[in-house]
Design a protein around this nucleic acid. Structure first.
Lengths: 159, 159
DNA sequence: TATTGTTATACTCTATAACTATA
DNA sequence: TATAGTTATAGAGTATAACAATA
């Protein structure tokens, strides 16, 4: 039953203000959760890597060269999902900083193998220590088991 | 014991080619795993949302307006980690497409409340159905329990 | 004095087309 | 003909400074 109309006109809050934002729907989406987590980690990563003048993608590139000496640009692009034209400039800068060197590929005359210089190897030894230390900070709220589970489940999404 | 030097100079593969890329170190890092998973989901999300002419951030904005009518730009920026100058253009485009309308905030004369138009509400009803359907595809390799666990652990990282 | 929304602007990231040299 | 690497370029995303209107 409807209440009788009041003779005095009361505006019943026609445009209510939002006090607390409801994010419950977005939080049901894998893309939202994975992206928010990713951005949170990258944010801290960027800060800690600033001392080495490395962005998170630069770190991934140098880390792959570290563990795969002689890797080609194509292989880097394939693994990291970077387009070739966007890798060229990054490698050039790293070469100018004398972190990497380029040598002809042993079999394929079109390709170029990438290698760390001594300077690059020293930088990456420090940078990988920093990255590994960062792990403990970003997974602070997770137990060792939970961390392992999270890694495994994330890989089930992208592999 | 060292083999005696051969009188014939044999080059012992000085620059070996990389056949399969070793990504095992990167896979121990939370940032790498979360980012790869995030990009994988966003890639598919972008394709499926193209029909609505929505990027994944546009979808998040409209979804928050859907579930929080009257939300302000500041609140959107706070929740999604967008900077105010970068939101202005997006909202303008959505207004031109007649998906959202802007009305003065009931209490704060500086602020503007954001609302879906009828067109916007219809579009988002379809878009959210598409997003929910996408969930099943990206979590194909996960059981219902695993999916729930993954969501919970990701939130432990970013919340 | 602080905050909301905005403009202008610069820098980075991402994407496409087209070229060269080699396979 | 196809592939590796490169150049040029356009578009999208992200960053800071500065301003008007309002709190």
């Amino acid at each position: 039953m409807k209440a009788p109309e009041s003779p005095i006109s009361v505006i019943p809050e026609p445009v209510p203000a939002v006090d607390e934002v409801d994010t419950s729907y977005l939080e049901t989406l894998m893309g939202y959760n994975a992206t928010r987590a990713s951005l949170k980690v990258i944010e801290l990563f960027t800060k800690r890597m600033a001392v080495y003048e490395l962005r998170h993608v630069d770190f991934s590139i140098l880390s792959l060269i570290t563990h795969n000496p002689g890797i080609t640009s194509r292989q880097l692009c394939g693994v990291l999902g970077i387009l070739p034209p966007n890798l060229v400039g990054k490698i050039s800068i790293m070469e100018k900083r004398e972190l990497v060197s380029r040598r002809p590929h042993p079999q394929d005359g079109r390709a170029v193998g990438l290698y760390l210089t001594e300077t690059g190897a020293k930088l990456m030894a420090d940078a990988e220590r920093t990255a590994t230390a960062l792990e403990d900070d970003v997974t602070q709220k997770l137990s060792a088991t939970e961390k392992k589970t999270l890694m495994r489940l994330l890989q089930k999404i992208y592999l």
